[in-house]
């Protein structure tokens, strides 16, 4: 079930360094929200606060609230492990587990969590998620081969299948296409379009055409200067952001008059 996300006054630190400052943002369920902005403006950091991956980095800590269907992810007694099971993530560089086959990579989330499945159940889950990631036809004859033997685009779709196999409610994508060629990018974008009926999707991208193509809403982040924390400048319907943004800085960035 797709869930809504309400972030209020979120500030994230790396040790003493403040990376993002006072971000308030709402993400509708079953929609695609794109984060755009210059490098170092805290898009990825913000994304990682949404499933508590930020605190995996030594010195990473967060102030503020992230509500997932009214439940605070940073509330007392909340287990980050359960949070990550609910909010899945796809990374910039495809990172299939090198020791595992294609099949085991998809089943990894289930197997690693130590839940025992019957072989037939697992087969169904693997097939369903590989089909969901538009990868099934390409790999169905070599499920036992190592996942690292696939092409970059296939590996990324494998990682998406792996992320969806644990049935999260939200899917975070951190520049999922930046290492891929245009054809693989198109395959992933089609996939995002298909997945958004079931998942709330948040995607960080440097490709503005991509943001315009796949997202319903777009958030523009910026930072005042190098070393300053990143801030949310504006968030609105994607059409509005790309045709008639309310803030001058957004228009400058989108039209390439930035900096």
């Amino acid at each position: 079930m797709a869930k809504r996300i309400d972030v209020s006054a979120l500030t994230a630190y790396y040790g003493a360094h403040k990376a993002i400052d006072g971000i308030t943002l709402h993400v509708e369920p079953a929609s695609v929200t794109a984060f755009i902005g210059p490098s170092g403006c805290g898009k990825s950091t913000f994304l990682r606060t949404l499933n508590r991956m930020h605190e995996v980095t030594p010195g990473g800590r967060v102030e503020g609230k992230v509500l997932l269907d009214n439940e605070d992810l940073y509330g007392q007694g909340v287990d980050p492990v359960s949070v990550r099971r609910t909010v899945g993530m796809v990374f910039q560089r495809p990172n299939p587990f090198p020791t595992m086959s294609i099949y085991d990579n998809v089943a990894a989330g289930l197997k690693l969590n130590g839940i025992k499945y019957r072989r037939s159940e697992l087969d169904d889950i693997v097939e369903k998620n590989l089909r969901g990631a538009n990868l099934w036809n390409e790999v169905k004859d070599r499920l036992g081969r190592p996942g690292s033997g696939l092409s970059g685009g296939q590996q990324q779709r494998l990682c998406i299948a792996r992320a969806t196999a644990v049935e999260p409610d939200v899917l975070l994508m951190d520049e999922p296409c930046s290492a891929l060629d245009p054809i693989s990018t198109l395959a992933i974008e089609d996939l995002i379009d298909k997945l958004k009926t079931e998942y709330t999707i948040v995607i960080v991208t440097h490709n503005m055409q991509q943001a315009a193509r796949v997202s319903d809403r777009t958030a523009f982040f910026n930072l005042a200067a190098i070393g300053e924390p990143g801030r949310l400048i504006e968030v609105d319907a994607t059409e509005k952001i790309f045709s008639n943004p309310s803030v001058q800085a957004t228009e400058d960035y989108i039209s390439g008059r930035f900096g």
Binding site: N51, M53, V56, V81, S82, V83, R84, R85, T86, G88, M89, F91, R93, N95, F97, P98, T99, A108, G109, K111, L112, N113, G114, C159, R162, A163, V166
Partner: peptide
């Protein structure tokens, strides 16, 4: 062992000890 593998496992809601046992050590 690349940090990306640890993060990939953690991001699926796998506890740290299982990540070490099932992903880091086998790699």
């Amino acid at each position: 062992v690349p940090n990306e593998l640890r993060e990939a496992s953690l991001a699926m809601g796998v506890p740290k000890w299982r990540t070490i046992l099932k992903v880091v050590l086998p790699t």
